[in-house]
Computed example of a mutant assay.
Amino acid sequence: MTPIGSPPVPLVAAGFRSEQTFPEVAEPVRLRIPALGVDSPIQGLGLREDGEVEVPATVGVAGWYRLGARPGQPGPAVILGHVDSKTEPGIFARLSGVTVGTEVRVDRSDGTTATFRITGVSQVAKVRFPTDLVYAPTLDPTLRLVTCGGSFDRSRGSYRDNVIAFADLA
């Protein structure tokens, strides 16, 4: 309500432009999880033609979903990795066994490192993937690590579940 005698205040000011007031966070270049023996360069990932998130090109490399938050800025930064291939374990072969409190380090292109701590791990059927829980905006910097898990469906040539590790900035 406008006080008597004051000019009306428009709900949306014409020509208003919000300025970014927080420092830009550099892109991630390396993922390190010492407790799991993970030390990997990070590949940028986008979307496939069908709208699904791309996956890393090789089993030994982690991939960051570059259309989302950067690790250390508000929002969920999502890093994906393979659990295995027909011939070798993948970068996230041991992710399902990660424990709460495990340290995750993401090195960035400007030489800084964002350190996260695992807060929980979940295994969910791919047909019930919690898209909102993984990708929806958060006010704080968070990290989501995603891989395959559960039983292997030979007819489809893929795992039936996803393993998702959740982490908060330390």
Rank of each mutant, 00 (worst) to 15 (best):
R48H: 09
G51H: 03
V53C: 09
E54W: 00
V55L: 14
V55R: 11
A57Y: 07
V59L: 05
G60H: 14
V61Q: 00
V61P: 00
V61E: 05
A62Q: 01
Y65S: 02
R66C: 10
G68W: 12
R70S: 14
Q73E: 15
Q73W: 05
P74S: 14
P74Y: 14
P76K: 03
P76R: 12
I79Q: 03
L80W: 00
G81E: 03
H82F: 05
H82R: 02
D84N: 15
E88Q: 15
G90D: 06
A93M: 00
V98S: 00
T99Q: 15
T99C: 04
G101T: 08
E103I: 08
E103A: 13
V106F: 05
D107N: 11
S109M: 10
D110Q: 10
T113G: 04
T113K: 04
A114K: 06
T115R: 13
R117H: 09
T119A: 06
V121N: 05
S122V: 07
Q123C: 06
A125G: 14
K126S: 10
K126V: 04
V127A: 11
R128I: 03
R128W: 08
P130A: 06
L133R: 15
Y135N: 09
A136T: 12
A136G: 15
A136Q: 15
P141A: 12
P141S: 13
T142G: 03
L145C: 08
T147M: 08
C148K: 02
S151P: 06
S151R: 11
D153E: 11
R154L: 10
